[in-house]
Simulated scan of single mutants.
Amino acid sequence: MAIPDFENNGILRSVSDSPPTHYTITIQLFSLLTAKYSVEGYESRKFEAGGYKWKLVLYPDGNKKKNVKDHISLYLVMAGADSLQSGWEVYVDFRLFLLDQNKGIYSVFEDAFTRKKCFHGAMLSAGFDKLILLEDFSDVSNGFLVDDTCVFGAEVFVCKEKRTGKGECLARIQNASICKHVWKVQKFSTLGDQVYASIPFSAGDYKWTIWLYPKGNNGKGYLSLFLALESPKTLPPGSELFVVYTLRILDQSHANHHSHNGTTKYSAKLASWGSTKFIEQEIFKQADKGFLKNDACIVEAEVTVHGISKAL
């Protein structure tokens, strides 16, 4: 029996023994999401239901854009709406799911006031700002977050059409360790406009390289620095690596290093991340800064591969 929770934005909550029909996302590193996705939200892959493309957007510590905190926020978002004709409207009956891993059953969340939501050009998402209290979600006895792992899902029915779903698994890499690589760039004054790459190094069972643009990559007056996946085509089709990295140029005189930090996803299509405006060339070349000494600089990369997202 479904029980309306009117004190929590009118959520109708029930339980189900069956997994969601259209999509599931298993997150095995939930604690890491709060550092990167607490503001912009973690977006799942696209999935199809009722002839349309959708995705789930999760805010692990509440949707800050709506001044929500201490809750999990979860939304269904229409993807690819730009390809639809002007004036389109899609009425959707949808449910969001959260697995109780202790009992093997799902909590099912629906809107208590209206069963069908109208998606259109001005409203591309619907869901729940306060799906569940973070305190209740994190309580191991409730079974929603166990060993830093949780499972969300969605059912989306358009014109009563039901299709077999697909899913993804964001799996953590056990005992992920920080891998460091140091690259000494000699004869810096002789370097040209092109990109220079370090020798490949290993981190998380993958090969990486540092890309250095001595005169900037579309950032005039700056030095550009990137961390690149050496062979992105070796990734399983449709997969993404969840990576935390730091790029530095070392201060060889005072140990006051200049750095750039990133937490992002690498894929075959997006295989390099970094900073176009890493450091101003004028500052970099100042003798008292210690970045350039004896016409050489020392570049360092720290890379931790925390997980891989694979299509199911």
Results as ranks from 00 to 15, higher is better:
Ile210Ala: 10
Lys265Ile: 10
Val158Asp: 07
Val243Pro: 00
Pro214Cys: 12
Ser253Ala: 10
Gln186Val: 14
Trp211Phe: 11
Phe201Asp: 07
Ala255Lys: 05
Ile199Leu: 14
Lys166Phe: 01
Glu168Ile: 00
Arg248Ala: 11
Pro236Arg: 05
Phe157Trp: 10
Lys277Ala: 15
Ser177His: 11
Ala255Pro: 05
His260Asp: 09
Ser259Asn: 14
Ser177Met: 15
Asp251Ala: 04
Val185Tyr: 06
Lys265Phe: 01
Trp183Gly: 10
Leu191Gln: 00
Ser267Gln: 08
Ala176Val: 12
Leu270Glu: 13
Pro236Leu: 05
Cys159Met: 05
Ala203Val: 10
Arg172Met: 02
Ile279Trp: 15
Ile279Glu: 09
Lys265Thr: 13
Gln186Asp: 12
Ile199Gly: 15
Phe242His: 00
Phe242Met: 02
Glu161Tyr: 01
Gly167Leu: 05
Val244Trp: 00
Thr264Gly: 03
Ile199Ala: 15
Leu212Arg: 03
Ala176Asp: 12
Asp205Thr: 08
Trp211Val: 03
Asn256Asp: 15
Thr209Lys: 15
Lys162His: 02
Leu212Val: 06
Ala268Met: 06
Lys162Trp: 02
Asp205Gly: 09
Ser177Tyr: 11
Leu225His: 05
Ile173Tyr: 01
Pro232Phe: 10
Ala271Val: 10
Lys207Val: 02
Val195Glu: 12
Lys187Ile: 08
Thr209Gln: 09
Asn256Cys: 12
Trp208Ile: 07
Ala268Glu: 07
Thr246His: 03
Arg248Pro: 02
Cys159Trp: 01
Trp211Pro: 00
Gly221Phe: 13
Thr264Ser: 12
Lys215Asn: 10
Arg248Val: 07
Pro214Val: 10
Cys179Ile: 07
Val156Thr: 08
Asn256Ser: 11
Lys187Trp: 02
Trp211Gln: 08
Asp251Arg: 02
Leu191Ala: 05
Ser202Met: 14
Gln186His: 10
Ser275Thr: 03
Arg248Asn: 03
Ser272Phe: 15
Gln252Thr: 02
Gly204Trp: 03
Pro232Ala: 03
Asn261Asp: 15
Thr234Glu: 07
Phe157Tyr: 11
Asn218Glu: 12
Trp208Ala: 04
Asp205Cys: 12
Thr190Lys: 13
Lys207Thr: 08
